[in-house]
Amino acid sequence: MSILDGKKVIIIGDRDGIPAPAIEECLKGTGAEVVFSSTECFV
């Protein structure tokens, strides 16, 4: 059981930092449901 088990998650990644797909991949085994995932450029 995880702290994120059954939770809905919004992921906002950074183009020059950690992109959203990498964060999403890390959350796969936690039981969290990713409802939105996007990589943005913060300039």
Rank of each mutant, 00 (worst) to 15 (best):
G13H: 02
C41V: 06
P21N: 13
L27W: 01
L27V: 07
C26M: 14
E25W: 03
V35H: 12
G17Q: 05
V43S: 11
T30W: 04
E40D: 07
G31D: 08
S37L: 01
I12L: 14
L4H: 04
F36P: 00
I23R: 01
D14Y: 02
V35Y: 12
A20C: 10
K8T: 05
G13E: 02
S38Y: 01
L4C: 06
V34K: 03
C26K: 10
T30I: 12
K7I: 07
I18N: 03
E24C: 04
K8F: 13
S38M: 05
L4I: 05
F42M: 14
F42Y: 15
K7M: 14
K28V: 04
I23T: 09
F36R: 12
I11M: 00
I23M: 12
T30Y: 07
G31S: 09
I11N: 01
V9D: 02
I11P: 00
E33D: 15
D16L: 08
K8G: 04
K7L: 15
G31E: 13
I10M: 14
C41H: 10
C41M: 11
I3E: 14
G29W: 02
I18V: 14
E24Q: 14
S38I: 07
E25R: 07
V35E: 11
L27E: 03
E24I: 03
R15E: 07
